[in-house]
Design a binder for these strands. Structure first.
Length: 605
DNA sequence: ACTAATCGTA
């Protein structure tokens, strides 16, 4: 078993190993109470077990009281009784307390933790996103001569997944299989969920199939997870197929399954099918809940169908469901995007009047709205208001404000916010970096952007291809092609995968400098590197060629290639062809590319 | 006695 840690090369820190001192002193015990002795004690334990098993312990105070009474008993209750109560504490989400109780049990009460107790500790650590400590507890298990169970390892796999480290989770799962631990429904479920949450839905489907091959019947939870992943990937047809497939096996969709499918259909505006899905669901005896209805409100809002969104809210109220902060935010958000700040503020005031407390998301939506309306003062005022109400602006709020200052033509003020946000306890993330860099580039401050990227590279931020693509776009637009080319060439050495956007931006930049041969080479080079140019890439290249009347032959050549590949001429390209024709009336070679019969239809397909 | 899942903001 020691080979698990070896396989993952995980170092076990000793900080959470079970030493003789207690880290948390939440538990105080007094001398043994006579009432807890003997038959009374037995009576108490029986009622404690009943309370825990029936889910009647609803608040933390009761659980704490039970623990303290158990800790005072003589003789002490068994580990089994303690872990029963620990399970309740975990269900109440008091993870740190559960861990400190286990420590107290060991250091003060002398109860040796067993595998199941340590499984609880590992689960708590994983939920607290302290996965490396979870592995150190696994180390402790080995030291104590305890054999980890499948649940132990499933907890660790889940911890790795929750942390976003699905690759390592898979390594561990593969290793488990090789070591003779047959994975069970939970292990597969955890992995499938982790993969779906990371957006690796196709790999998740692979594990689902593997599970079926091993003769496990995935339950409705596992299927729903994959169905949701497929929907989020835009693969709604596959999601619907999987739903029929599971029904065929006697695994019936539940409210969650329907909710996932409804959201998938909503995001493609497939309203008719949304309607029949709701009908089907209700025919099966399931009523849409607040969450399902909120999805409808949000989807209608995003499509600009505010009337329909409001009628769903009406339905909600008829059904006895009070609209919540999600419901109101969907409306506020859409009004902000439509520059209807009066309406947005009206909904905001309405929700407050109805006793629905706004949250940080609502404030961020409104701040975004005021920024979009170039009313930075109102945005800053709201920032103050929310702070007064005790809300701490998060990284999303700051990013919104930074973007707002950029949009309002104040990139240097935005840069100041970027550097000052950490004083408010918030650290820029990759999106924040993207927003400020784009703002600086668009505000003709490319050199500022270049030096900022230099600073970001020195910090711990893991810069991705998107960041460099933004910078390359800025450099190309500013005419700094040589520097851009040098940076572009250095990207593979940084371990970054150049994508279609990066290539397209460089092709545009090269054309801007009249370097058409080099641009053409790059276009060819893309195909060789397994990055197929798309509609946009070809349009950008042809637009570049059309700026130079010497390149008309090459324009026609590429327009033909586009037609052969089934690509369409976009609006900007069409405009340039028309401009060319208006000054070169005799030139008929290019006319055939205007109003191509199929182009419009292709674009809508 | 211990293990997994659906909704909103840049």
């Amino acid at each position: 078993m020691g080979t698990f840690s070896h396989a993952l090369s995980i170092h076990f820190p000793s900080s959470l190993a079970f030493s003789k001192h207690c880290y948390y002193s939440t538990v105080t015990t007094t001398d043994t109470d006579d009432t807890e002795r003997n038959s009374n004690g037995t009576q108490f334990l029986i009622s404690m077990r009943n309370l825990c098993r029936s889910g009647q312990v609803k608040n933390f105070g009761e659980a704490l009281d039970l623990f303290q009474r158990m800790a005072r008993m003589k003789p002490l209750p068994s580990v089994k009784d303690f872990t029963l109560l620990l399970g309740v504490i975990v269900r109440l989400r008091h993870y740190t307390t559960a861990i400190s109780f286990v420590k107290h049990m060991y250091s003060s009460l002398g109860i040796e933790p067993d595998t199941i107790t340590l499984n609880i500790v590992i689960n708590c650590l994983c939920r607290l996103k302290l996965i490396s400590f979870g592995f150190s507890v696994l180390g402790t298990m080995f030291k104590l001569g305890l054999e980890p169970t499948l649940i132990t390892l499933t907890n660790l796999i889940n911890g790795l997944c929750v942390q976003g480290n699905v690759a390592q989770a898979i390594v561990l799962a593969d290793h488990m299989e090789k070591m003779g631990y047959p994975l069970d429904v939970y292990t597969y479920g955890v992995l499938v969920n982790g993969l779906c949450k990371m957006g690796d839905t196709s790999v998740a489907v692979g594990w689902l199939r593997k599970m079926e091959e091993r003769n496990w019947t995935p339950n409705v939870v596992v299927y729903s997870t994959v169905i949701d992943g497929l929907c989020k990937d835009g693969l709604v047809a596959e999601a619907l197929n999987l739903c029929s497939e599971m029904s065929g096996k006697g695994v019936w969709p539940n409210l969650v399954t329907y909710t996932c499918l409804i959201q998938g259909l909503c995001s493609f505006g497939r309203w008719k099918e949304v309607g029949s899905m709701l009908d089907e669901m209700m025919k099966m005896g399931m009523m849409p809940d607040l969450q399902t209805l909120n999805i409808l409100v949000d989807a209608f809002s995003k499509e600009g169908k505010v009337m329909q969104a409001k009628s769903v809210i009406g339905f909600m109220i008829i059904m006895g469901e009070e609209p919540d902060v999600f419901t109101y935010n969907s409306l506020i958000h859409i009004y902000c995007l439509q520059n209807q700040m009066n309406e947005a503020m009206r909904v905001f005031n309405f929700m407050v009047c109805r006793g629905c407390l706004p949250d940080i998301v609502v404030f961020t939506s409104l701040i975004h709205g005021w920024c979009k309306n170039k009313n930075i003062n109102k945005a800053m005022h709201l920032l103050e208001e929310m702070a007064k109400m005790g809300f701490v602006p998060d990284v999303v709020t700051w990013t919104t404000l930074i973007g707002g200052f950029c949009q309002a033509g104040r990139p240097l003020a935005a840069k100041e916010l970027f550097f000052n946000m950490h004083e408010h306890g918030q650290v820029p993330n990759i999106q924040t970096c993207a927003v400020i860099l784009d703002g600086l580039c668009k505000g003709n401050l490319v050199s500022e952007a270049v030096s900022l990227v230099g600073a970001m590279e020195k910090s711990n931020l893991d810069l991705n291809i998107v960041i460099y693509t933004i910078l390359l776009d800025g450099m190309c637009s500013a005419g700094k092609l040589n520097a851009a080319w040098e940076l572009f060439s250095s990207l593979p050495a940084k371990g970054l995968q150049i994508n279609i956007y990066t290539y397209t931006i460089m092709i545009k930049g090269l054309c801007k400098q009249g370097l058409f041969d080099k641009a053409e080479d790059l276009l060819m080079n893309m195909e060789e590197n397994g990055c197929l140019p798309n509609n946009c890439t070809y349009n950008v290249f042809v637009q570049g060629l059309l700026t130079n009347k010497e390149e008309i032959a090459r324009s026609i050549k590429y327009l033909r290639i586009m037609r052969d590949k089934g690509f369409s001429v976009d609006a900007a390209t069409t405009e340039m062809i028309i401009n060319y024709l208006s000054t070169h009336k005799g030139d008929t070679g290019i006319q055939e590319f205007l109003f191509q019969k199929n182009s419009t239809f292709r674009e809508f397909h």
